[in-house]
Design a protein around this nucleic acid. Sequence first.
DNA 1: GTCTATATCTTGATAGAC
DNA 2: GTCTATCAAGATATAGAC
Lengths: 197, 197
Amino acid sequence: MEKNTDTRLAIMNTTYQLIAEHGIQKASFALIAKEVGISKPSIYYYFDSKNDMIYQLFEQFCSEISFQHFFNAEHFTQEQFSTQLIEVGFQMIQEQANDPYFGNVMKEFLSLAARDDSYKGRFIELQQDYLKGFEQLLLKAADWSLIPLYSLTEKAHILALVIDNIGNFMMLDDTVDYRNIWKTAVQLVFLEDGLHG
Amino acid sequence: MEKNTDTRLAIMNTTYQLIAEHGIQKASFALIAKEVGISKPSIYYYFDSKNDMIYQLFEQFCSEISFQHFFNAEHFTQEQFSTQLIEVGFQMIQEQANDPYFGNVMKEFLSLAARDDSYKGRFIELQQDYLKGFEQLLLKAADWSLIPLYSLTEKAHILALVIDNIGNFMMLDDTVDYRNIWKTAVQLVFLEDGLHG
DNA sequence: GTCTATATCTTGATAGAC
DNA sequence: GTCTATCAAGATATAGAC
């Protein structure tokens, strides 16, 4: 039985928007059904329960914001390393700014993760991907003698913290030049006369 | 009529914990009353509605995490500036780590703020306090020629993003040395041969 | 696949006695 | 101030016809 029909996609897309607008709890099957234009019990043909449906949405959400999705180590060159790192950060900031639902949905999933270990575990994976991912990236830069090994891990984590939190700050205050913050963060990490043991 | 009784405090403290454990929606008046050891309608003697009560808790929560609460510009000296900044950050990290409910409650309020402008407005105030606060702090350091004016605003914002997000990351992964990340971030900002125009 | 009808539970809130 | 009793609304989920 093939269940990846248009109806199923319509339910998931509509739910994504309704979660952003009203939160998970208030995005009821009644509301979703009304918005999609079907009856409430029809949703149960595609999903076992509301929990099941929310979790499938969550899995899809996570796969689209992985470290690898944005930062591919193979695309970095010795000559343009920091410039490329700045550019990829810009793309990430832009992509999240272009999806008006992204921030709200993220906040909903984060509050879910605070109380549910399934969600929490997935977020831990995601976070460690970013922490380790930036570390691998800077190690590559160190191989090319672009930065020293000293404090390399801490620098990687600073970049992870900054790029991650820019999205949160953007939601509340859009008068700040976040691209410039990211650019400065990368430049500080790649300073020639940087921190030394 | 004096309503700041022990019962009122018990209700608020219990609610704070229950929100951390079950989220705002599932922290029902029935559950709160049971936990406090009173009947459900008794809560209405102290609060007009659930919204009223949650918002009062939110106001108290916000006042306890203001920039001024941690970073008082008058306590910084020319000789020990960066060391003091590192130390105050350590205290902030420690204080949040000591309250096991803090992170979860914060996530709940953030998801509320995504859909309610009253909450959102208060969070914007808080965020701008931190952004402006760090900027004022670095301006003071610049007056003392401890850092150049170039990229000063961006550096201040980097510090705000890092210290704020450390709390979020700590919740998911406690194997990372977050104190060292903060220390490195401050050191990068205060590098003698830093960024220049 | 999609529907109508309905069961069951939980919620925030009120009435009114003491 | 605190209680018992109760209401109306909204939630998830199921039964069963088409």
